[in-house]
Design a protein around this nucleic acid. Structure first.
Lengths: 193, 193
DNA sequence: CAAACTTTGGAACGAGTGTTCTATAATTCA
DNA sequence: TGAATTATAGAACACTCGTTCCAAAGTTTG
C-alpha cells in the first residue's frame, strides 16, 4: 500500500558510517549526512530517528560489517599464533595504506564519547570485551598447539593484545608511517615469545 | 598606562585545558569556556584569539605543564629500566584513579583532529616523536646498565613503548578497570625481557 | 479509477554556535 | 586632575546546528 522507499538502507548506513568514521560524531553535521547519503532530511529522521540514534545504528552496522571482518581470521584460522599474527599484520598494513587515516570507528567513538555518553561507552566496552575473549581463545589454541609457552597468563596477554590492537588503530589514525607501525606490531608479536 | 588584567593567564589556561581535556575540541563551546574560566568573552578573544588559537595555546600549555611532568621520571631516573617501569606504572595508576577518565589531551586531540587538522596533527606528531626519543634514551641507558639485553632493537622498542603509552591512555579514557590496566602494563613491561 | 498511506522535497523553526561591537570602568602617566 | 589606553561587561550579529512541519508525489490495494 505505501509508497516504497527510494533508498537502500544498507548503503545509507555505509555512507553515514564513513562520515562518522572520518570526522567523528560531533564534527559531523546533519547536512554532511544529507549530502553524503543523498537521503532527504525528513526521510532520515523518519527512518533512523535523530542524529544520536542514527549514530548508534551506524556503530552497530560497523560492528557487524567491519569489525566482524577484522576479527574473522582471528576466529577462523586454526593455528592460534598465526591467527594473532595475521590480525596484527593486516591491521597495520590497512592502517597505513588507506589514503585517509581513519583508524577504527569503535576506538574513535570510545575515545570521543565514552567519558560523557554511557551508551557509547557501553557499546565500545562490550565490543572490546568480545575482542579480548577472541584473543584469549586464539591464545589458548596456540598454547595447546605448543606455539606459545603454557607458562603465560592468557587473560593478561589477551588484555595486552586488545590494548595493543587499539594502540595500532590509534597510531594509524594519527598518521603514523609504515616503518613505525611495523616496528610497533613486530614488538607486540615478539611479546608472545 | 593601561588598565591591568583582572585575570591570571596561567589559571585561565588551566581551566580551559581541563574543559578541552574532558570534552574534546568540538564538544567544547565558547560558552563552556566563558563559564569555566570566569573570563569575559571579549577578554578571551582579545587575549587568545579565536577558539582554535586558544586551543593551540592550551595544547602547548599541556605539553609544558602536564606532559613534561609525566615524562620527568623517564628522563631523570638514572636507572633506565626503572625509569620506564615507573613511567608506565604511574600512568596506569593515574589513569584509573581519576574520577573523570580523561586520558591524555595530546592523544585525545590527535585522535579527534589529526586527520582533518594539519596543525594539531603536527603538534601531536612532534610530541610523540619526542616521547619516542626519550624512551630510546632510557632504553640505551638500560642496555648500558645491563638490565636490558643488548640484542634488542632500541628504535623498535621505543616505538613500541610510545604506542603502548598511548594505548594505556586510550584505555584509561575509555574507563578501563584497574585490573585490565594492570595486566596491560605488566605485559608491556615484560616485553623488555 | 480511487482511496489509503508513506515517502519526498524543501521551507521553516528555535536554539545555540563562534565572533564582533559598543559603551563603560579602571588604571597610569603627564 | 585629566588625557590616554586597555580591560570589562553584555548586548548583538550572522550563521549553522539539530529538528519539525506541510504540501506534493508516488505506489499499492480495493
Amino acid at each position: 500500500m505505501p509508497r516504497p522507499r527510494a533508498f537502500d538502507e544498507e548503503s545509507v548506513l555505509d555512507n553515514a558510517m564513513n562520515i562518522f568514521w572520518s570526522k567523528g560524531f560531533e564534527a559531523t553535521s546533519i547536512q554532511d549526512l544529507v549530502d553524503e547519503t543523498g537521503l532527504n532530511r525528513a526521510s532520515m529522521y523518519a527512518s533512523f530517528g535523530d542524529k544520536k540514534a542514527l549514530f548508534l545504528r551506524v556503530l552497530d552496522h560497523y560492528s557487524q560489517k567491519i569489525s566482524a571482518q577484522r576479527f574473522a581470521d582471528l576466529r577462523n584460522i586454526e593455528d592460534g599464533r598465526a591467527a594473532i599474527e595475521k590480525t596484527f599484520r593486516d591491521t597495520a598494513k590497512t592502517g597505513c595504506a588507506e589514503g585517509r587515516h581513519k583508524g577504527c570507528l569503535m576506538v574513535n567513538s570510545g575515545m570521543e564519547l565514552a567519558p560523557h555518553d554511557p551508551e557509547t561507552a557501553a557499546i565500545a566496552h562490550q565490543a572490546f570485551r568480545r575482542a579480548e575473549d577472541t584473543f584469549a581463545a586464539a591464545l589458548k589454541r596456540a598454547i595447546d598447539q605448543g606455539t606459545i609457552s603454557k607458562t603465560k597468563n592468557v587473560r593478561a596477554l589477551a588484555r595486552f593484545l586488545t590494548g595493543s590492537f587499539q594502540g595500532v588503530q590509534l597510531m594509524s589514525r594519527r598518521g603514523a608511517d609504515q616503518e613505525t607501525l611495523q616496528d610497533y606490531t613486530d614488538t607486540i608479536l615478539a611479546a608472545l615469545d
